[in-house]
């Protein structure tokens, strides 16, 4: 057997092992056993997780998750899918387990990897009970028959097999703020790092689209091109906890400017949370490491 042939066989074997090791892995069959969904808590999870911000059409009613919004990135355009309760075009006929696998494990109903434009990297840390509640709430929302449009991605990002290794690199189960001495900080961490997926915009990414965790929340280029998503670590964000909480409630900054751009949609969601939850987010933002802005 020639050297080239053994090398080829080895390479193929290596790829096969790589594929197998990084194949899509949905939640185990028994993941939801014993859990009952509470749609009232699900409505709060829905707001905290910001589902509507991406899945409602630009001109659609606020609770119709018809999808269709375009998200431009360095890898191509992602188009939000219909996740309304429609049985054919939405998620109406998905089982709870299929939905929970999509949300927490990034695996679609067809068993393929989902693109991390859907922030399952953050939702993977959500409590299974919260996700079951969320699913119960989603089922109460109206149906839209808008058919899905495929993403328009550049090669090689249009090859879903590349998502296996990507997940192996960047789908982390540990928390960034390891030390949470109070229940309030623990709640804040949960809302920011998991449900709120704040870091998806506020933390810069490396060339592969993974988060640069050493610059956690230190600001990043705006994916849609204009301006920058601000640094909200204590190095730059000097507002008091009360001022941060007020901003998340009314959208007003301490000097009475108002939230704009994509943050306006975020504030519509955080306005629905309790005062205690907004205070917990503010406490978390004061507890993370201060990271100075990079010199331009």
């Amino acid at each position: 057997m020639g050297a080239f042939r053994s090398f080829s066989l080895l390479a193929i074997a290596g790829l096969a092992v790589g594929w197998f090791a990084t194949r899509p892995q949905p939640l185990p069959d028994d993941a939801l056993i014993g859990l009952t969904g509470d749609p009232a808590n699900g409505a709060l999870v829905f707001a905290a997780a910001g589902c509507a911000s991406c899945h409602v059409a630009t001109d659609g009613p606020a609770n119709l998750l018809s999808g269709g919004k375009r998200f431009v990135s360095d890898f191509g355009s992602f188009i939000a899918p219909n996740i309304s309760s429609d049985a054919e075009h939405g998620i109406g006929s998905w089982t709870d387990l299929e939905l929970a696998s999509a949300i927490k494990a990034g695996v679609g109903r067809d068993g393929r990897h989902l693109y991390p434009a859907f922030p399952y990297t953050a939702y993977s840390k959500a409590s299974t009970q919260d996700i079951v509640d969320l699913i119960a709430y989603l089922r109460t929302l109206p149906a839209s028959d808008r058919p899905d449009v495929p993403h328009a991605l550049d090669f090689p990002f249009n090859q879903r097999i590349t998502l296996g290794p990507w997940k192996a690199l960047f789908l982390r189960s540990d928390w960034i703020l390891a030390d949470v001495p109070t229940p309030q900080l623990e709640r804040g961490r949960y809302l920011v790092e998991s449900l709120g997926h704040c870091t998806e915009c506020h933390t810069p990414r490396n060339a592969l689209g993974g988060l640069q965790t050493a610059r956690w929340m230190a600001g990043a280029p705006n994916p849609s091109g204009e301006g920058r998503i601000p640094n909200i670590t204590p190095a730059v964000l000097k507002w008091s906890e009360g001022e941060i909480a007020e901003y998340l409630k009314s959208g007003f900054t301490p000097d009475f400017d108002s939230a704009g751009g994509t943050m306006a949609a975020v504030v519509r969601n955080t306005a629905k949370l309790s005062d205690a939850d907004r205070a917990a987010i503010a406490a978390y933002l004061k507890a993370i490491p201060a990271v100075a802005n990079e010199e331009p």
Partner: peptide, 10 residues
């Protein structure tokens, strides 16, 4: 808020 959402960049 609604004007800043649609017409003002960060």
């Amino acid at each position: 808020g609604s004007c800043h959402e649609a017409y003002r960049a960060p």
